[in-house]
Structures are given as C-alpha cells and as structure tokens.
C-alpha cells in the first residue's frame, strides 16, 4: 500500500524515525551481532584469554547429552502447553459463544489471568502444589500420591505445564471467541435445519472455519512455551530436579549467567534465534496465504 498524498522534507522523516532506529541498533542489532560473534569464541574460566574457534561451540553443544535432553524437554513441554491450552480454551470459547445471559461476566472472569506475570503464576501454583504445605499437595497425598515436585521430575513437569497453561488460557480464549463470532450464523442455522447434531455442526463447520485462528494460536503458544515461560520455571523448579524442566531458554540463562560459559550460552542463543526466525517465517507465510483468498 502506498499513500498518494505525501509530505516532502529533506530531514524531518529521518528525525522522526531516529529514536526507534537508534534504540533498535543499540539494543537489538548490536547485541544480536555480539551473540553470534561470541558463539564463535572460546573463553577460559577467568575471561582472560579468548580464542576464535569457529563452530567448535556448536559442535560441542550437539555432542552434549544435556543439551539434547533440554531439546527433548522443551519439545514435550511446549507440546503439552500448546495442546492443553488450546483445547481447554476452545471448549470455553465455544461455550461462551453460545450463551446469551451473563456472557460479559464470564468473559471478564476468564480474561484476567492475562494480566498475571508468568513468574507470579509460577509462584501461585508452586504454593498450591508445595509438597509439605500446599493445599493441592495435601489433597494429592490424601489420595495416596507421593507428591513432591522438588524430587520427582514428572511432578515438576506437571507443575510448570499447569502454571503455564493457566496463564495462557485467557489469551487463547479471546482469539477463539473472536474467531467463532466471525462465523456466519446462517451457516449454522442451515446445518441445523438439515438435521445436523451440535457435535456434527462443530466438527464439519465450526472447526474447519476456525483453522486459521487455531494455526495462528498454535504458533503463538509454541513461542510462548519456548520463551515467555522463563518466569514460570524460574519461580517454581529452576529447571530441576535433575534438569527435568530445564527448557532451552532456561539453559541459555543458566549456562550464561550462573555457569558463566559465554561461548556455549551464545551458541545456544544463536540456535534459539534460528528457531524463532523459522517459526516467524511459517507464521508470516501463512498469514499471507490467508489474506490472498
């Protein structure tokens, strides 16, 4: 799209874009460049001696079982978060779309967790599931489950998935609801007159028409699980026990900040950047396709 009417000035447009471009260069491009550069260096433990090692850091990463395990953990975690988050929100959105009375109240009561920081969501659920004092930990123990997320890796994974899904439901819910409300009523009525049951109507009409929203949310939820859940993990398990909840972004932080392995951590950052860029490209190509028809 281009405007027909434009203003002319030799300097004003540069002045107007300058603040954003300056911040972008200083805080985006320069650090990103640094991350790539660092990933090709190797530093001794005291930071006194630095050596250019080409792709040695990357080779070391892919030979490292801990790193490959972190990949696997991230895959399981993001799959669980995305699938549970999407199905629960879809169910809620379908219900909210169908009712008339009280719709606004239900909507308000469902969207507020969007405002909760991931770290706080983590703290809340860690408190509920705390092995010795948590109310849910207590209930589980009454049922005979030896619950302890601080010792049991599966329990830890359940905790971070529950906290992450809980925080993301409101976001998915709003998008599904907007998608559902854009489906023409006449389609549904026609199917109802033809005698299709509510379930049949959902699977043959609503679900296919909702697929652009679903796909969009799938990508957003995977990105969310990859990056934004850092706060959830840091406030609950800190990647433990025995790295069972150490997702990739947490490992970048742990290796870079706590273990001070700058080269290895930067190489991990670069791999993560590549994953994000791939996900964004998929998303943009998809949006372009959708716009065309």
């Amino acid at each position: 799209m281009e405007k027909r009417v434009v203003f002319k000035s030799a300097w004003l447009p540069y002045l107007l874009v300058a603040p954003q471009i300056a911040i972008t260069i200083i805080f985006f491009f320069w650090p990103a460049f640094q991350a790539v550069y660092q990933s090709l260096l190797s530093q001794d433990a005291f930071g006194l001696h630095t050596e250019f090692v080409w792709f040695e850091n990357f080779r070391a990463l892919f030979a490292d079982d801990h790193y490959l395990l972190s990949f696997q953990t991230t895959a399981i975690f993001s799959l669980l978060v995305a699938s549970l988050g999407l199905s629960i929100s879809l169910l809620l959105a379908v219900a909210a779309d169908r009712i008339v009375r009280g719709a606004f109240v239900f909507k308000t009561l469902l969207i507020w967790p969007y405002a909760v920081a991931p770290a706080i969501a983590g703290a809340l659920w860690a408190f509920l599931f705390a092995p010795s004092i948590g109310i849910l930990g207590y209930v589980l123990k009454q049922w005979g489950v030896p619950w302890n997320y601080m010792l049991n890796g599966d329990h830890a994974m359940i905790l971070v998935v529950v906290a992450s899904v809980w925080k993301q439901i409101s976001y998915n819910f709003l998008f599904f609801l907007a998608g559902l409300q854009s489906i023409p009523r006449s389609l549904m009525e026609a199917a109802a007159i033809d005698g299709a049951s509510p379930f049949r109507r959902f699977w043959t009409i609503v679900f296919p028409l909702l697929s652009p929203t679903t796909f969009f949310l799938l990508v957003v939820n995977i990105v969310y699980a990859f990056f934004d859940t850092f706060g959830v993990i840091d406030a609950t398990t800190q990647g433990g026990p025995a790295a069972s909840t150490q997702i990739l972004v947490y490992k970048v932080y742990y290796d870079g900040v706590k273990a001070a392995d700058l080269g290895g951590s930067s190489a991990q950052s670069v791999i993560l950047m590549i994953i994000v860029i791939a996900l964004s490209v998929i998303q943009f190509r998809f949006i372009e396709k959708k716009v065309q028809y």
Partner: peptide
C-alpha cells in the same frame, strides 16, 4: 525475543 539476546 529479548530472552535470546539477553546476555549481550
């Protein structure tokens, strides 16, 4: 995303 280039 910020988390990726946080250390630099």
């Amino acid at each position: 995303p910020g988390e990726v280039r946080i250390i630099p």
